[in-house]
Amino acid sequence: MSLPTAAPTPTTSALPAELLDEALALRAAPAEELLAWLERRLGARAAIASSFGVEDMVLIDLARKHAPSLRVFTLDTGRLPPETYELIEVVRNRYGVHVETYFPERGRVEALESEQGFFSFRRSLEARKACCAIRKVEPLERALRGRDAWVTGLRREQSTNRADVDTVEHDREHGGLLKLNPLAAWTRHQVWEHVRAHAVPYNALHDRGYPSIGCAPCTRAVKPYEDERAGRWWWEAREHTECGLHPVR
Rank of each mutant, 00 (worst) to 15 (best):
Q190I: 01
V195P: 00
E113V: 14
V165Y: 06
A185L: 01
H189V: 10
D148P: 03
D207Y: 02
E126M: 01
A185C: 02
R135C: 08
L154S: 05
R145M: 11
L180T: 12
E141T: 07
W150R: 15
E113K: 06
L140A: 11
A199H: 12
V109W: 05
N181I: 05
T152K: 08
I134H: 09
L112R: 09
D148Y: 06
V151C: 10
H206S: 02
R123A: 00
S120L: 06
N203R: 04
V151A: 05
E193S: 15
N181D: 03
R155I: 13
R135Y: 05
H194K: 10
R162Y: 07
L125F: 11
V168L: 04
R122K: 15
V191D: 07
D164K: 04
P182W: 09
T152Q: 08
Y202M: 01
E141I: 06
R208T: 11
W192Q: 11
D164Y: 02
F121L: 10
D207T: 12
C131Y: 07
K179G: 01
L205C: 15
L125K: 13
E138G: 10
L180Q: 06
Q116A: 02
Y202L: 00
T152D: 09
V195F: 06
R172I: 00
Q158D: 14
G153T: 09
R156C: 10
L177P: 07
S159M: 10
R147A: 00
T167A: 15
G209Y: 15
L125T: 15
A111Q: 14
Q158V: 11
R123K: 04
P211I: 07
A197S: 13
R145H: 12
L180W: 11
L183P: 05
R188N: 11
K136N: 05
G176A: 10
R162H: 08
N181L: 05
V168E: 03
R156V: 06
R208F: 07
G153V: 08
G117A: 11
E126T: 14
R123F: 00
H189S: 15
E169N: 07
N161K: 05
L177D: 06
N161E: 11
G153Q: 11
T187D: 01
R196C: 03
D166Q: 14
D164W: 01
E169Q: 13
N181S: 09
P182S: 03
E157S: 08
I134E: 01
W150Q: 13
L177W: 09
A197P: 13
L178T: 00
A111P: 09
A143R: 01
F121Y: 14
V168R: 12
Y202Q: 00
L154E: 08
G209D: 14
R147S: 00
G117P: 11
H194I: 02
Y202H: 03
V165T: 13
T160R: 07
L112K: 06
S159Q: 12
N181P: 04
R156W: 10
R156L: 12
V137H: 05
G209R: 02
V165H: 05
G175P: 07
